[in-house]
């Protein structure tokens, strides 16, 4: 049985809060992460929100 060596990097498509969380966890666990974002900056929909329940933090 041919066992192919696995590539230790990951591509995350989408730089919103979800993609960022996945990227951070993976990078912290020892994988190289490519975070690919379609627009000019990461942050996604959440950066457009004013305040977040329950702590009323700003979304930044």
């Amino acid at each position: 049985m041919l066992i192919t060596k696995k590539n230790g990097s990951v591509m995350i498509v989408g730089g919103g809060v979800t993609g960022i969380q996945a990227a951070l966890d993976l990078a912290d666990s020892g994988f190289f992460v490519y975070l690919v974002e379609k627009s000019g900056a990461i942050g996604g929909a959440m950066s457009q929100l004013d305040k977040i329940f329950p702590t009323n933090d700003c979304s930044m």
Binding site: S9, V10, G16, G19
Partner: peptide, 9 residues
Amino acid sequence: VGAVVLAPG
């Protein structure tokens, strides 16, 4: 890459 994660929102 070894894996792809789709998080397009």
